[in-house]
Nucleic acid binder design. Structure first.
Lengths: 342, 342
DNA sequence: TTGAAAGCGCTAACAC
DNA sequence: GTGTTAGCGCTTTCAA
C-alpha cells in the first residue's frame, strides 16, 4: 500500500509497478495483471478498483518485463536501410511499417550510410534487442554471418540480394528495367547512349549494367563502353560525370541514369543546355511529371509491404524454402526519353 | 553443462542463455557476463574460453533482460511523425537518428498519418516500451495527457508546438518565413496573391497565415481573403485549389504555397500555362533548383539534430524550464518568385 | 473469481 | 580474479 497519503515525487523513470497498483487497489498482483491486460474472469467491481488505482498512480505496463517473461522476444522488427532521407527507402519503410503495424509489430529503422561495418553492427544490435525479424537492404558483400541467425530470426533482403546466403528476397527487375530503357532509346535512333551508374559493388548496379549491355549488344551497337560512368553515389558526382560525358567528342545523344540520385545529378548538369540529350532514369521520383522526365518506374512501397508480408508469414510458421520476389518495372514516357538524337 | 555432445536443434527463438555459455566454458554466470560485456578483472585465458563458448553456441546477449535488470528502461527513443515518406520528416528523422546513434540510442520511428487518436496510441505504446525520450510532431490539439509523463520521460515537440502543455520545442519561424515570401512578392508589385494552406488546425498553417496576413495588412492591401485556400493536405487537392484560384476574375498574379506538398500540387496545376503566376513555396525540396522554384528554405535535418540534442541534455540531468528553439528561414530566389505581375 | 509462488535472462552487490 | 545471491516487473503455472 501507499506509505503516505501524499503523491510521490515524480523522479524520472521512477514509475509505479504493477505490484504498487495491486497494493493500492487491495488486490493481488495477478488480479491487477488480468485487469490491465483485459483478461477475463474478474468482477467488474474489482476491475474498476484496479483501473482507478492504475490511473491514480499514472501506471503503465512495462513491456520490457512482459517480453522477458513471455519468451524474451520483443514485438518489434528491425529495418536496416542505407539512408532514410532517400525517398526510395523512405517509401519502402512506409510500406513495411504499415503492414507490420497492423500486425501489432513496431518497426525500428536504422541507416548504414552504405557502410558494410555499420551494417554488421546494426544487425548485432537489433538481434540483441531480440527483434522478431530483420528487413535488410544490404551494404555488405558477404552475409554468411547470418547463416545461423536466419534459422532463429527471419531475415528478408530488400532491393539487393544476399551474398553467400539463401534468404527471402524482394527485388525490382533491374535488368529488364534497364533493357526497357535502352530499347526505348535505341528505337528512337540513339546509338551513343551514356550510362550513369551507382557503386559498382552493388548488385542493382551490376544488373542494370547487364541489362544495358545486353540491349546494346542485341542491337549490334559497339563502342558503348566509352560512355559508361560508374560509382557515382551522390548528386554532386553524378552531375560531374554527366558533364564529362557531354564533353566527349562525339557526345552521347542520350543518357540512362540508374537511380534517382543519378537522375537528379544529371538533370542539374543539363539545366540551361540548348540541346539536352534524351534522358531516362531508373526509379520514379516526385515532380518527375512536372519536369517531364521519362523513367523506369516501380513501386518501392509495395516492396516494403511484400517484405513485411514475408516476415509475417515466416513468423506464422512458414518454414518453406527461401523465396525471391522480383517486382516488375514499367516505362513511363514523359518527354525527356522521347527526344530524338541530334 | 551441455546435456549431449551434439549441437542442439535450432528452433526459432531458442537462443542459448548466458547461463549456458557459462556452463559450456566452465565458469560462473558472473564471469561470463563480465567477459561478454567487456568488463575488467578477468584473466585473458578465462575470457578466451568464454568467448569461444559463446561463439560455439551462437550466443547473443539479451538486451531485454539487461534493460529490465538495470532500471527497466530501454536504450531507445521514440519519434512520432505524420508521414515517413514526406521528405521533410524523412530529413528530420535522419538528423535525429544520427545524433542519437552517436549517443548509443536507437530511434524507433512511427507515423500517425495526421490522426490525433493514432498519436495517442503511439505515445502509449512507446511509453510502454520505456523509451528514454519521445520526439513528437504532434497531430492532436491537446497534449495535457502528457503533463505527468513529461516529468518522467523527456518529450520534445518538433515542427508544431504543444497545446496545453509546457515542453521543449523546436520550430521553424513560420510567421517570419511567410512574411518574407509575401514581402518579396509585394516588392515586385504583386497585389493579388493567392495563399495555399495546409489543414487549418495545424499551428504551422496558422502562423504562416498570420505572417501572410500581417505583411499584406502592413502594405495596405485589402480584399486578399478572396485568394485564400486552406485545408489542402495532399498534392491532388493543392492542384485543384490552385486551378480554382487561377480561374478567379481577376486571377492572382502570384501564389504563396505553405509547404512542400502544396507547392508540388501548385506546380502541377501550372504546367503548360503560358503565363504562370509568380510562385514562392515554404520548404525547400529536391530539384527545386532545377525547376527554378523560389522557396522559403530552412533546415529540417538541423531541427532533428537540435531536438535530439535537447533530449540528450534532459537525459543528462538538465531540469531547467522548457525551452523553445525557433529556427530561421531564408528566401532562396530561383526565378519563380521573381516573375513580375501581369 | 482470485491468489501464491516460481522464474524469464540478466546485472549489481557483496562475498571469497 | 572469480563466485554466490538476490531481484528488476512481469506472466505463468497451479492451487484455493
Amino acid at each position: 500500500m501507499n506509505d503516505t497519503g501524499e503523491a510521490p515525487a515524480l523522479r524520472p523513470h521512477a514509475r509505479p509497478t504493477l505490484r504498487q497498483v495491486a497494493a493500492e487497489a487491495g488486490v493481488s498482483l495477478k488480479t491487477a495483471s488480468r485487469v490491465l491486460n483485459g483478461h477475463p474472469h474478474v468482477t467488474e467491481a474489482t476491475a474498476a478498483r484496479v483501473r482507478q488505482a492504475s490511473d491514480r498512480l499514472g501506471f503503465r505496463l512495462n513491456r520490457i518485463a512482459r517480453e522477458l517473461r513471455s519468451g524474451a522476444t520483443s514485438t518489434s522488427v528491425g529495418l536496416i536501410i542505407s539512408d532514410l532521407a532517400n525517398p526510395f527507402y523512405a517509401r519502402l519503410a512506409r510500406g513495411a511499417e504499415r503492414v507490420l503495424r497492423d500486425a501489432g509489430l513496431q518497426l525500428i529503422t536504422t541507416s548504414t550510410d552504405e557502410d558494410p561495418d555499420q551494417e554488421r553492427s546494426l544487425v548485432d544490435e537489433l538481434l540483441e534487442r531480440r527483434v522478431r525479424a530483420l528487413l535488410l537492404v544490404p551494404s555488405g558483400d558477404d552475409h554468411g554471418y547470418l547463416e545461423n541467425e536466419g534459422r532463429r530470426t527471419p531475415v528478408v533482403f530488400l532491393d539487393r540480394p544476399p551474398v553467400h546466403l539463401g534468404a527471402d528476397t524482394v527485388l525490382v527487375d533491374s535488368r529488364a528495367g534497364a533493357a526497357l530503357a535502352v530499347e526505348h532509346l535505341l528505337a528512337a535512333g540513339h546509338r551513343r547512349i551514356g550510362f550513369l551508374g551507382d557503386l559498382s559493388r552493388l548488385a542493382t548496379h551490376r544488373e542494370r549494367m547487364a541489362g544495358f549491355a545486353g540491349a546494346m549488344a542485341a542491337a549490334g551497337v559497339t563502342g558503348w563502353e566509352r560512355y559508361v560512368r560508374s560509382d557515382s553515389h551522390d548528386m554532386a558526382s553524378a552531375r560531374l560525370r554527366t558533364a564529362e560525358l557531354l564533353a566527349l567528342d562525339p557526345p552521347p545523344t542520350a543518357l540512362f541514369t540508374t537511380n534517382n540520385l543519378n537522375t537528379a545529378g544529371a538533370l542539374r548538369a543539363l539545366v540551361g543546355r540548348a540541346d539536352p540529350p534524351a534522358l531516362i532514369g531508373f526509379d520514379d521520383f516526385d515532380l518527375a511529371d512536372v519536369l517531364g522526365v521519362t523513367v523506369i518506374g516501380h513501386d518501392p512501397e509495395k516492396m516494403g509491404r511484400i517484405a513485411a508480408d514475408m516476415v509475417l508469414s515466416r513468423l506464422g510458421g512458414d518454414s518453406s524454402d527461401a523465396r525471391c520476389v522480383i517486382l516488375p518495372t514499367r516505362l513511363v514516357p514523359r518527354g525527356s526519353g522521347e527526344r530524338p538524337p541530334r
